[in-house]
């Protein structure tokens, strides 16, 4: 069993989770505060990956970010960024594919807080950044932890999107879930089993921690 696919998997999951956290926080704050008529459209787009087959998402990434499309060629010619069949492309795809797993818990957490927290701080003349960082986020730690854990776990389990946009390039885009598929195709069940056991154990531990949070145990620890 090679360790590279496992390393790539956790690197992808960590970077995706980290970046998605900073994307999701302002997005969630906007979704909770806004009275815009575009809110349902944005919420629908955020939730699309929940119901869409990963291959559909991967297919459109491949089309739009490929060198034959305006967007893909522009990115390549202007910034030298090639998103198709690259690790950077995997990160972009993972961020979009895992978006609802980070946004939903944090949005639910922010919505559950009384309006009076924000309004009291507004009346004190505090900035949005200060309200968010000092008042709102510290009071939804369990929701944030749930978002982080679910995003991390979901990225570890990605297959369809990763295969479509990243292909199967060793040491570049070959993550553990694809390695398992490869090993099974090569009838190397021992290696496939080793990868699978590791992913199974990690997924179990990660999801167990989510249920402990929801059960209130980690809630007390975190506070």
């Amino acid at each position: 069993m090679e360790l590279e696919p496992l390393y790539l998997t956790f690197k992808l999951a960590a970077i995706t989770t980290f970046l998605l956290f900073f994307i999701a926080i302002p997005l969630c704050y906007w979704l909770v505060q806004t009275r815009s008529k575009f809110k349902p459209i944005i919420e629908t787009i955020v939730s699309m990956p929940l119901v869409l087959p990963p291959t559909v998402l991967g297919f459109y990434f491949l089309v739009f970010l490929g060198p034959n499309h305006f967007l893909g060629s522009w990115l390549q010619n202007t910034f030298g960024i090639q998103l198709v069949f690259s690790f950077t492309g995997l990160i972009v795809a993972s961020i979009i594919y895992s978006l609802p797993f980070m946004v939903h818990p944090i949005q639910a957490g922010l919505s559950s807080l009384p309006k009076s927290y924000t309004e009291t701080a507004q009346l004190m003349g505090k900035s949005r950044f200060l309200i968010l960082s000092k008042v709102l986020l510290p009071n939804i730690k369990p929701a944030i932890l749930t978002g982080i854990v679910l995003t991390f776990a979901h990225t570890i389990g990605e297959f369809g999107v990763v295969l479509m946009i990243g292909g199967n390039i060793p040491e570049k885009t070959k993550v553990a879930s694809i390695a398992i598929y490869d090993e099974v195709e090569a009838l190397n069940y021992t290696a496939a089993n080793q990868y699978s056991l590791i992913l199974l154990g990690i997924s179990f531990a990660v999801l167990l921690s989510v249920y402990l949070i929801n059960g209130g145990y980690l809630k007390r620890v975190v506070r």
């Binding site: 009384p114 009076s116 927290y117 309004e119 009291t120 009346l123 004190m124």
Partner: peptide, 8 residues
Amino acid sequence: AYVFQDYG
């Protein structure tokens, strides 16, 4: 300064 019903 505003004291809300739920104190905030």
